[in-house]
């Protein structure tokens, strides 16, 4: 009993630790003061109004959404087959492939950004394009997809698949109707990681962003270098609301309490 109380106390405290900075941002985004201060004073929607009046913010939101969406889907589509192959087989060079896929995680991203700028510039003469950004974002999100999925594939007993094949389903059919459904939670987690990593990336995106299309985090990064006011808190509060909505959509599709279970 005591341990249960202790668990709940520590557990709630730690969850609060995660929520607190977000609550601060949301609180500040409603402040009537013209500068950042916590707790904020009064209640006003003027900072949100300011964001919505500026069409370039709406454009940035949409652009970032498209970028992260496309990159995530591509990363999932190429990452899951790779994870499956890695989890089910032992072959020469497996370690190499694993390390290859993880290595984009380890490089300071500013370095990767400059490298890609040089590279795209050298080979295509048009370094800043949506396609270049998508490719860059696939590279930075792929490690999360593979890391997350390989483990789950390992966790699924090959016997289950064998049973599927014994029942007459072919290799592909077994994969799609037996293995993949069991992977649901990991795929959701991988999607979340990948979308989030792409959604907040500044260091790589900043070099590949084209003139008229500015991804949101880059826009925010440029903004806070010159001015800091509650409007920027409103922008990030909006991204928190978007995260809420995304999570609710996932909840409707797969049930959020299932996010981590089969």
């Amino acid at each position: 009993m005591i341990s249960k109380v202790a668990m709940w106390t520590i557990g709630s405290f730690l969850l609060l630790f995660l929520a607190f900075p977000l609550l601060v941002l949301i609180n500040v985004s409603f402040t009537e003061l013209n500068y950042l201060s916590f707790p904020g004073e009064g209640f006003t929607l003027k900072w949100y109004q300011k964001v919505f009046e500026d069409a370039s913010y709406i454009d940035s939101f949409l652009y970032s959404f498209k970028l992260s969406g496309v990159a995530t889907i591509c990363a999932i589509l190429i990452g899951i087959p790779a994870s499956y192959a890695l989890a089910r087989n032992n072959f020469k060079g497996k370690g190499f492939v694993m390390n290859l896929i993880s290595s984009p995680l380890l490089l300071p991203q500013i370095f990767l950004g400059l490298a890609l700028l040089q590279f795209f510039y050298y080979f295509t003469n048009s370094p800043q394009s949506f396609l270049a950004l998508v490719v860059a974002h696939i590279i930075i999100t792929l490690p999360y997809v593979v890391r997350t999925c390989v483990n789950s594939f390992i966790g699924i007993s090959p016997y289950i698949e064998e049973a599927g094949r014994d029942l007459g389903a072919g290799q592909w059919k077994t994969f799609f109707f037996v293995t993949l459904p069991l992977m649901k939670s990991s795929i959701v987690a991988a999607t979340l990681f990948s979308f989030a990593v792409s959604w907040i990336n500044v260091e790589v995106t900043i070099f590949l962003t084209s003139a008229d299309q500015m991804a949101l985090p880059v826009k925010m990064f440029n903004y806070v270098q010159y001015s800091i006011d509650p409007m920027i808190a409103a922008v990030s509060a909006i991204t928190i609301y978007i995260a809420f909505i995304l999570i609710l959509i996932i909840d409707m599709l797969v049930g959020i309490e299932n996010i981590a279970s089969k």
Binding site: L15, L18, A19, F20, P21, L22, V24, L25, V28, L36, S37, F38, L192, F193, A196, W199, I200, V202, L216, P217, M220, F221, V224, I228, I232, A233, V235, S236, T239, I240, I242, A243, F244, L246, I247, D251, I256, E257, I259
Partner: peptide
């Protein structure tokens, strides 16, 4: 559980630039 997952996941989506300002306040 739903609330807990929302709390766990949403920090992922706020850019580090702005989160750091939250820390300053705290």
């Amino acid at each position: 559980k739903r609330v807990a997952y929302i709390v766990i996941i949403s920090p992922l989506f706020t850019s580090a630039v702005v989160r750091s300002f939250g820390w300053m306040v705290i």
